[in-house]
Design a protein around this nucleic acid. Structure first.
Lengths: 146, 146
DNA sequence: ACAACCAGTTTTATTTTGCAATCAGTTAAA
DNA sequence: TTTAACTGATTGCAAAATAAAACTGGTTGT
């Protein structure tokens, strides 16, 4: 079996778009890590550990590894500090932003979202696709090496 | 503690919109059930069991129960067939449709989606919000009792 | 009466998660 | 130059969630 075929032949149970998406971020933590990168500006292991929801370090390590394997984030090392790692988004990762926004829209309507968050989200939603695309452009400038 | 306060005081780890959304559908199966109702038109326990991804009946039962508790679906009994149960979407459930569409948009771009599915999804995405809202209206006619 | 059908439940084994402690290497201060 | 603090993790263990298969009690059609 050739590599190219192998990619499309991966033993997925189905090739439904929902199923394929949930294989990547269908769990309690993955999108929270993406949120921490996109919204909170976090880039390092220790920063992710300090989120409100208190992810365990072994779970965090495994999720970061899966996200890297999936090509949603990439790791690079701080040249000044040899052991420091910086996590960045790829284009594929930045493209998850609209999903976060739809989640937020739904939560805003049906869940007890913190007032401060609600205001921020509403401002983006009011800006429509234009606003979302401009935020994604900002993320590109921050995360993609030219 | 009064009921109304109790709702807003639920012991969530945070009141971040992403976290609150993932508490409801942050797992491998929940959104696939919603997909089966919205896209495949499934309404009954046996139908959900027959999806391509082969959900186990105990998991299905637990997810349907959680979705009902969350007010995303409701159960009703077929008056003709006493033991038959019909699952329907609430407005809160129908409002998950845009999330499915954003998931699909992402998968379409980055994952090996089945061609037939890809064509259907693309047709909806080409229609923009107008198309999405009209599909949600169709779902309302089918699921919400007047 | 009997077989097929319905929505689940039970049982058991396996996998994943959560938590705390710990690790090896690197840097900064004394 | 020891020493302490910080870095991104890893390890061991218990608890919880999931998966697979068999099974249940009731209903319906023949």
């Amino acid at each position: 079996m050739q590599p190219v075929e192998a990619y499309f032949m991966e033993n997925y149970k189905s090739h439904c778009p929902q199923y394929l998406a949930l294989q990547v971020f269908g769990d309690k933590w993955t999108l929270l890590i993406i949120r921490d990168i996109m919204i909170e500006g976090k880039r390092r292991f220790r920063e992710f550990l300090q989120s409100k929801e208190k992810i365990a370090s072994n779970i965090l390590a495994s999720r970061l590894q899966l996200l890297e394997q999936d090509g949603i984030i990439y790791r690079s090392k701080d040249p000044q500090h040899k052991q420091k790692v910086i996590y960045s988004l790829t284009e594929k990762g930045i493209d998850l932003f609209p999903i976060l926004m739809e989640n937020a829209r739904w939560s805003l309507k049906y869940k007890p979202v913190e007032k401060e968050d609600a205001i921020k989200v509403q401002a983006i939603l009011d800006g429509g696709w234009e606003k979302i695309l401009s935020i994604m452009d900002d993320l590109r400038k921050l995360h993609l090496k030219q």
